[in-house]
């Protein structure tokens, strides 16, 4: 069949203008499906006709469109119909929502973690500070011990052992007496803590008379006492807190000869 002759036959115009009968239409649609040039010719004539019609008449008054939009308003779909979302877009949207939820949960989790870690960090800081403080205390004590040890082993130190008197034999105290400076130090080998309201007081016996050598308060390790130039004996009594001018001999605890 000569397609060009068919296209030129007027059948297309007859069809578009609505003048073709059923048989002609059926034939044309068959030809259109078979030959792209027929389909193109239909489209071309439609466009030319539309153009010619538009050029030949004025546009209708705008009131018609307004009336139509008003008349059909109840029939328009409520949400403005947008192009249907493409499948991949739908999956992408779903995926991004899942990612968002995931990310939000992760954020919440990490936020809690950070808060918890902050708390732990604060606790550690406090603990560190107290450890440092303790450490300083121990260092000081260590230094004191070292100093004490050096003094005790000094050959110039005179060592006076003072065992417990009768009934207090388990007690033991030592006096270290510097032979150069005459400074007196005392070290509790084994003495119970003084009861509340009482203190231990050291006495030097000089020419048979007791001389106050100081109260042993707040002292651990080697305690520095008063300077005693001369003595033949040392003794410790339990006195009221703050000490006494004369020893209470009934409260004698330990004593030792130089």
């Amino acid at each position: 069949m000569d397609i060009q002759a068919y296209i030129q036959s007027g059948i297309i115009e007859s069809y578009v203008l609505g003048l073709a009968d059923a048989e002609e239409i059926a034939e044309l649609l068959r030809m259109r499906d078979q030959y792209p040039e027929v389909a193109a010719a239909i489209e071309q004539f439609e466009a030319a006709l539309k153009q010619q019609l538009e050029n030949s008449a004025p546009p209708p008054p705008p009131s018609i469109k307004a009336a139509l939009m008003q008349e059909l308003a109840p029939e328009f779909s409520k949400p403005a119909v947008v192009k249907p979302m493409r499948t991949w877009l739908r999956y992408a949207a779903a995926a991004s929502i899942i990612l968002l939820i995931g990310s939000a949960s992760l954020n919440l989790y990490l936020y809690n973690e950070v808060n918890e870690t902050k708390g732990k960090y604060q606790a550690l800081l406090v603990e560190k500070n107290s450890v440092i403080a303790d450490n300083k205390v121990y260092q000081t004590k260590m230094q004191d011990m070292l100093n004490s040890l050096q003094m005790m082993n000094d050959p110039a130190m005179k060592k006076v052992m003072m065992p417990g008197v009768k009934g207090k034999e388990q007690m033991m105290t030592t006096v270290y007496w510097d032979s150069r400076s005459k400074d007196v130090y005392v070290f509790s080998n084994n003495m119970p803590a003084a009861p509340a309201g009482f203190s231990y007081q050291l006495w030097a016996i000089v020419d048979g008379k007791p001389v106050d050598a100081g109260v042993m308060d707040n002292c651990s390790g080697l305690c520095r006492m008063k300077n005693i130039p001369k003595a033949e004996m040392f003794a410790i009594t339990l006195e009221k807190a703050g000490g006494s001018p004369v020893p209470t001999l009934t409260q004698l605890q330990v004593a030792g000869k130089v």
């Binding site: 019609l53 209708p60 018609i64 469109k65 779909s77 403005a80």
Partner: peptide, 15 residues
């Protein structure tokens, strides 16, 4: 039943 599609149809074919 798109309103914007109908509006477009009218604008393009009414004349």
């Amino acid at each position: 039943r798109s309103e914007s599609a109908f509006s477009y149809l009218y604008d393009n074919y009414a004349q």
